[in-house]
């Protein structure tokens, strides 16, 4: 067998091996450690009668609410994110022709509607915010539909924050 034939066989064998083996999962980004959150935070099923974000913003301060929306922004080093009302249009809707790299910023939406349809969700560990990002926790990511259960707090400017006690992430 000539040297060329042996080399060809070796190259083919190596190529076959590389195709057959599974690629390892991508390593976690050390700059964005995922928050370690209590198991009780994860809801197995979506709570019934969840309100929309617009409705929650009109609810009274201090009430326990269940709110449904889509994940907008996610903080890199704290378990905090914002949710947008389901009626708002992200830049990744079917049929959207805009080539938007960050469709979760809802830049295609009317700013006034956007301002009235977004709330903040915070996950706390005791009195402090849980450290680490909540992105990838239980599949949570930008534009994922979620239902958040928690206590609503509002400031005098109308900003609504939900201190989450349970989160259901739609698959």
């Amino acid at each position: 067998m000539s040297t060329r034939t042996i080399l060809s066989v070796l190259v083919l064998a190596l190529a076959a091996c590389s195709q057959g083996s599974e690629s390892p999962p991508p390593p976690a980004d050390p700059a964005r450690p995922v928050a370690v959150l209590p198991a009780s935070l994860r809801l197995e099923s979506a709570p019934s009668a969840a309100l929309s974000v617009v409705e929650v913003r009109a609810a009274a301060n201090g009430t326990e609410v269940a709110v449904t929306g889509r994940v907008k922004d996610i903080v890199a080093t704290r378990a905090v994110f914002t949710i947008a009302d389901l009626s708002l249009k992200s830049c990744a809707e079917p049929g959207d022709t805009m080539d938007c790299e960050t469709p979760w910023d809802y830049c295609c939406e009317d700013p006034a509607r956007l301002a009235a349809g977004v709330a903040t969700v915070e996950v706390r560990s005791g009195a402090e915010l849980a450290t680490g990002t909540i992105q990838t926790w239980n599949g949570l990511d930008h534009l994922k539909s979620v239902v958040v259960v928690g206590k609503l707090t509002k400031d005098d400017k109308g900003n609504a924050t939900i201190i989450a006690s349970g989160i259901y992430v739609q698959s």
């Binding site: 903080v75 301002a115 900003n159």
Partner: peptide
């Protein structure tokens, strides 16, 4: 800073 921006949505 990010927290500030997300809390002060107004």
């Amino acid at each position: 800073l990010e927290l500030f921006a997300l809390r002060r949505l107004d």
